[in-house]
Structures are given as structure tokens and as C-alpha cells.
Design a protein around this nucleic acid. Structure first.
Lengths: 129, 129
DNA sequence: TATGGGGCTTCCCGTGACAGGAAGGTCAAG
DNA sequence: CTTGACCTTCCTGTCACGGGAAGCCCCATA
């Protein structure tokens, strides 16, 4: 199977799949003509990575998860640790965004949004506010 | 005032302030020796940008907001539009992260996290799940 | 057999918003 | 005069790719 069909199956752009090969994440063999040939196991790995990425795991975490996935002697504790760490990052980001949202919402609600220059948003950003 | 003191006042790394100069966001004058000299208005602008950045505005938005801030003939509607657009981005990101968090929490809760290889997290990421 | 239009390859540059670090000029104190 | 703390520019790296150029390769059709 060539790269464009693999891309369809995995739900990833071909460019991304080439990138994953370049960084040694998923490295399908090559045909004599140099084309990448995706075997079922390669598609499997690509789809696994696509899902992990869609959950926000970094490439490094995807690499570790893929190794664990392919290692029958793994301990689920190792997987869980990666996921919990990522969950912590997500919670931190959520808190940061929620705080931004709260402040911004207040400012936006206070702003008339008309032709006059008076603006609570700018006042809120100004140093001496 | 030199850059390190300006950095302290604005709560930004000196490196970041040089970057802002490079992209023409805040461009303080130079002493004869080439050192940047920060006037009160430069500190003002830097602090304004620092606050806007901390609310998640992009550099481009900060540039626009700073222009509006310094333009007494502005319409608050223009400011509000930028802020509302950013608020939309924040909400989208919040939704995305909340969805990730929900899925991840389910998976993590289902995982024993012990020495055994059986792992619902990996199962959840696997293609045939 | 020629040709045309895909699909495949590598290579290089750009993204956003900086951080790290090297090489070298400047300044005030001892 | 030297030391050490500043300051400067310049180059590279980050993260996870996207865009596009230049050049093979393959298949179908005329």
C-alpha cells in the first residue's frame, strides 16, 4: 500500500506520515523503486499514533506509548504514568485558559463596542489600571 | 533605563524585549553606545503587551491592540472585535481540551497501573478498539 | 511508442514566540 | 589595569508539521 492510501486509512496527511518516518516513529519498508510500502502493522502503528496525537500526547509520548503497545512484557503502570502526566498538563492548560476566559469575558462585557474611544478592555490592559 | 531594568518593570525577559524590538512592536531609541534606552512610554507599551500576551492574545493582536491603545480616535468596537475573536479561540481550545480530558480520564481510571501488561489505555488507542 | 497526468521522492524554507549560547563591545569599581 | 557585570548582534534550536519546487515513476490511452 502506498502513502496516500495509508494516509486515508490512518486519517493523517501524507506529509505527516513522511515526517513520522523521518523521526523514526513509524518506518515502513521501501519498494525497489523507493516508494514506501505500508504493511498492516505499519498502518496499525500509524493509526495508534494518530489517536494518541488527537488526545494531545506529544510525539515523544507517542513514541513511548507505541513502544509499550508493541511490548507484550510491558507494565500497565508505565502506560498509566505517561497518561497521568499528560492529564496533569491538560488540567494546567485548562486552568490557564479558564482564567484567561474569565478576565476576557469581564472586559468584553464591560465594553460598549461602539464608535467612542472609551474602552474598558484597553483600560484593563493598561499599566496603571 | 537599560534593558534589564525595563525587563524587571515589565515582567518580561530581556530576550523577549529584544525580540519585540526586532519585530517592530516596541522600539526604544538607542544611546550613542548602542544600548536601548527605555523611556516611560516604552515601559508603558511593554507592560501593555505583557498583559495582553498573558491573556493569550497573539503578537499580531497585541500589535493591533497597542495601535488602538495609542490612537485617541479609536472606536471601542474595534477593540471589542479583537477580544471577542480571541475569546472564540479560547472557547474552542477549552472545548478541545475538555474532550481530551474526558476521554483520558476514563482511560486512566480504567487502568490498573500495575505490573501486568493488560492496559485499557493502550486498548483505547489501538485501531481495532 | 509517445505522451500525458497522476503519484511518489527528497530538499529547503516558513510557522509562533521566543530560549540558549557564542563572540565581542562598554562601563563602573577597585 | 583588570575584573566582572552589563550590553550588543548573530546563529541555532524548539514543536510538529505545511507549502512548494525539482525530479523520478507508473499506468492508461492514442
Amino acid at each position: 500500500m502506498n502513502i496516500s492510501e495509508a494516509a486515508r486509512h490512518a486519517g493523517l496527511p501524507a506529509k505527516t506520515i513522511r515526517y513520522y518516518g523521518e523521526i523514526g516513529l513509524v518506518t515502513p519498508p521501501r519498494d525497489p523503486n523507493g516508494y514506501r510500502t505500508f504493511r498492516p502493522r505499519d498502518l496499525h502503528a500509524l493509526t495508534f499514533v494518530a489517536r494518541a496525537r488527537s488526545l494531545g500526547f506529544t510525539i515523544g509520548e507517542c513514541r513511548a506509548l507505541l513502544h509499550l503497545y508493541q511490548d507484550p512484557t510491558r507494565a500497565s503502570a508505565d502506560v498509566k504514568e505517561i497518561a497521568r502526566s499528560h492529564l496533569g498538563r491538560i488540567d494546567a492548560k485548562l486552568a490557564e485558559l479558564a482564567a484567561m476566559r474569565a478576565t476576557l469575558t469581564d472586559l468584553v462585557d464591560a465594553c460598549a463596542g461602539d464608535q467612542r474611544p472609551d474602552c474598558p478592555i484597553l483600560k484593563g490592559l493598561a499599566p496603571t489600571a
